[in-house]
């Protein structure tokens, strides 16, 4: 591993300034992504700015809004009673992710900013990776893509955004609170936080260098809503999604009064399925309609031999989860 400078800033302002001033600097939170990338030689910053002592840990609930400090760990958020009561799909997504050990280290801010798991991205001996080195090509497209995206991608990059918790967060229109250089603050809706790979494979999100996520504002689901997260993966635990569906519904008898949907495991960004939501709002529970909504969501998929199965899997995962959320029998 290459030598680097390690810093522990006293406050948010210092942290932001330290990273903003040095193009080769990076924030360090739980380190479960950052240190792996450094050990593998994928990304070797000269300066690590450790933010873990900053006062950004903790959860505040005020009315319909939950503010989650960026340093809150995945386990802490999963254990929050408001999440269990009003956002079950967030809890389920968190607990379906990584392992207990990792979740005790990993922070929510870091989770949103985790880098893709693409095997070619993560091996610097592979030359062709547009995400790592612009205009070098894409080794995944040429070889064996499987844990890759089919939506928001093209032949330049098929990298998946692998976060689970980001999927329900996108579904409820959560926002990131961001601190920038010079004391600037801004709110970024998570639906606009990430950049699709087909809009530029080497840019992953809209943060400028040095901007720090300080918290995530998460609207709680109003009373009467029901939500859940279904994750389909190659083994039962400790594995990323092949496809996942976060679904929240408000039922009025047999009628879907309102619905929020996002898919994971299929997009270069956590995939909000607005068209599916529109197709289902005000309709009756109907598996055929569910499937049509799924088909509409994956209509523009870009697939490779190894990822082609994800088209049908996405439709099936969404249908299965809609059935589970809308029919009493499956609760």
């Amino acid at each position: 591993m290459r030598a680097f400078v390690y810093e522990r800033p006293a406050d948010v302002e210092q942290a932001v300034a330290a990273v903003a001033a040095d193009p080769q600097a990076a924030f360090l939170a739980g380190g479960t992504t950052q240190l792996d990338l450094m050990k593998d030689g994928v990304w070797t910053p000269d300066r690590l700015v450790d933010i873990t002592r900053l006062p950004l840990r903790g959860i505040m609930v005020e009315g319909q809004l939950m503010r989650v400090g960026a340093l809150t760990t995945m386990e802490q958020l999963a254990a929050e009673p408001a999440v269990t009561e009003r956002l079950l799909m967030v809890r389920e997504a968190l607990l379906a992710g990584a392992s207990t050990q990792l979740r005790n280290m990993a922070t929510i801010g870091g989770n949103l900013l985790q880098r893709t798991r693409c095997r070619y991205f993560r091996d610097p001996s592979v030359a062709a990776c547009n995400r790592r080195s612009p205009d070098s090509g894409c080794a995944a497209v040429d070889n064996t893509a499987r844990m890759h995206a089919i939506l928001g991608v093209d032949e330049r990059c098929v990298a998946l955004h692998a976060s689970d918790v980001a999927v329900p967060l996108v579904a409820v229109d959560a926002q990131a609170l961001v601190a920038g250089p010079g004391g600037q603050q801004r709110h970024i809706p998570l639906t606009e936080f990430w950049v699709r790979a087909d809009e530029g494979p080497s840019i992953e999100h809209v943060l400028t260098h040095g901007e720090l996520v300080t918290a995530v504002d998460v609207p709680l689901l109003p009373a009467g809503w029901r939500s859940g997260y279904l994750k389909v993966r190659d083994r039962a635990s400790y594995e990323f999604a092949l496809c996942s569906a976060a679904v929240a519904v408000l039922m009025d008898g047999d009628l879907i009064a309102d619905v929020r949907i996002a898919l994971g495991g299929v997009g270069s960004v956590p995939w909000r399925a607005r068209q599916a939501e529109q197709m289902l709002r005000g309709t009756h529970v109907d598996p055929v309609r569910f499937e049509q909504a799924g088909r509409a969501t994956v209509a523009g998929a870009y697939t490779l031999p190894g990822t082609a199965f994800k088209v049908d899997l996405a439709v099936a995962t969404l249908t299965r989860q809609l059935l589970a959320m809308t029919t009493e029998a499956n609760s």
């Binding site: 080794a139 040429d142 064996t144 190659d234 039962a236 635990s237």
Partner: peptide, 23 residues
């Protein structure tokens, strides 16, 4: 194995799956 380079494509325990306790 990558068909064009002969490289191991999933040579980590994150990518090569063995049965977990839940399996």
């Amino acid at each position: 194995t990558d068909p064009d380079t002969g490289r191991v494509a999933n040579g980590t325990f994150g990518d090569y799956l063995i049965a977990s306790c839940a399996d």
